[in-house]
Amino acid sequence: MKVNWTAFAVFAAILIGGLIVWLGRVDDPDALIGPPAPRSGAPAPEFSLVDLNGDTHTLADYRGQPVIINFWATWCPPCRAEMPDLQQVYEKYEDDGLVILAINQSESPNTVEDFADEYNLTFTIMIDNFQVSDTYEVMAYPSTYFIDRAGRIQHAEFSGPMSKSFIESQVLDLLD
């Protein structure tokens, strides 16, 4: 009997490929989430910082609300460029529970306050001494994390400036 090797190869690809997919099935998707880490899909690492008014903010306080964490500095041109857009999006979705935690990198409170006044920023601004930015493995400014109501990072953006539309599209995904 002549063996049709071509048909055999196709049949083997379907069967063996399907078997490997079946072996790789995930019965408990939550088991893949892993420990807190600064990557999409993982729980956002916890932190506590003091804002410009002296109030302490812990990330866990905002569980149940969509949160944007933005690492920035006044000397960083793309950070400056995207701040007005962040403010506009914040004003639009503040009533929906949107929280923006803008974490400045180790600049003086006066410098940061002057900047916030100049740009009329009303969201929460905190100053970090590189501890939180190290936890989030921030290597460039701005770096932005979009965190859903469950405290998981839905998207991490390491380039800037982000456009207003892009910020808003990510916020709408968080609000869904």
């Binding site: 953006e157 380039s159 982000m162 456009s163 539309s165 892009f166 599209s169």
Partner: peptide
């Protein structure tokens, strides 16, 4: 991406050509 978020982008034509690589 724009069509997926049409309600937002139709009001912000500048966003169509922004350099945000994740969009």
């Amino acid at each position: 991406y724009i069509f997926q978020h049409w309600a937002i982008y139709r009001e912000d034509l500048g966003g169509w050509i922004s350099l945000t690589p994740q969009a």
